[in-house]
Design a protein around this nucleic acid. Structure first.
Lengths: 172, 172
DNA sequence: GCAATATGATTAACATGTTAAATTGTTTGG
DNA sequence: CCAAACAATTTAACATGTTAATCATATTGC
């Protein structure tokens, strides 16, 4: 007994303006839904190992390198400073990572993964790879590669596009 | 004077396992970065009108219909119940939406947008449409449509894929 | 009719996203 | 050398994401 949502054309945007793109098809929504559809498969495994998605991103990034400065880690793991700061505090208390201060510049800190952290990575990675493989098989390897290319192209395309009204939008 | 991040091949995944997909190219990361590249352009306009992304999603969804039940709105706006509950409380206090209780079932509530809310939508929408148009021009209308199709296909493809280890993962 | 169960919505509790401010350390211009 | 400007990180404050628990109402089985 669902009410008058979706399915219909019951627009009432006041004036006769085109009612904007059908909401569920907006690009941000499509991207969000796609990402959620992907992550839904990874989260149970991460959760079973006591990791959140962001914690995993950090450990995953660290597993490939010796050490990295906090700012660079923020870029690589795609996290903002404050989130990263909190998560590093937690991961450090769990002995999954280690931190050192850069001698030549005491403001900077470097982060590296511990043996315990690596062990955790190695425990989770096979699950992730299996899931990724299954996804690739279902969606198609070529299509997946094409999708990635299109996403990266979109990203660079939009990064090149100037952001309007960001600096001085006084006359709004 | 950036340290030894990115660019290199300095893997050390302990054993000789393939070091997993290059991190920045994982599908979830690609989707997240693409979405952020898109939203970066919309946020200033929303912010200038005192709206967050989620608040906008809700008003946007409401603007196309007469009223909708809370649960259905959660689906349409792709928000979880608790988030929606908090945001609706705020939007109601700002008189941008109205709520009513369903007479036949006092547990359910319906939400609708107010005239003030519609006015706000109409003030923001032109900006959004202009930005969307610019994006389409830069990326290419056909490519954008293809991308959307591929995203939707991926979504349905992954929704059809069973989630492993979700119910009973005792032997982990 | 009523206890047991199920359902819609909210609240609770904690992690993260996000912007601004504070902290600490470094560099620079005089 | 030192005050001012700058830079890396953290803290603060608040909104949202996320899971579990709660509350109020409905439904069901007896």
């Amino acid at each position: 007994m669902r009410p008058k949502a979706s399915s219909g054309d019951g627009r009432k945007t006041a004036a006769g303006q085109a009612p904007m793109r059908e909401f569920s098809r907006s690009l941000p929504m499509s991207l969000m839904r796609a990402r959620e559809a992907v992550m839904r498969h990874f989260r149970p495994s991460l959760r079973a190992h006591g990791l959140t998605e962001q914690q995993w991103r950090i450990l995953r990034a660290l597993s490939a390198i010796d050490s990295i400065e906090v700012t660079d880690l923020a870029h690589v793991a795609y996290l903002l400073g404050p989130s990263l700061s909190r998560i590093l505090r937690d991961l450090e208390s769990r002995r999954l990572i280690e931190r050192k201060t850069v001698k030549s510049d005491l403001r900077r800190g470097t982060v590296s993964i511990t043996a315990k952290g690596l062990k955790l990575i190695e425990a989770v990675a096979p699950h992730s790879e299996a899931i990724y493989a299954e996804m690739t098989k279902r969606y198609g390897a070529q299509k997946l590669a094409d999708l990635q290319d299109m996403l990266h192209l979109l990203e660079s395309c939009l990064l090149a596009m100037p952001v309007r009204g960001d600096e001085a939008a006084d006359d709004e």
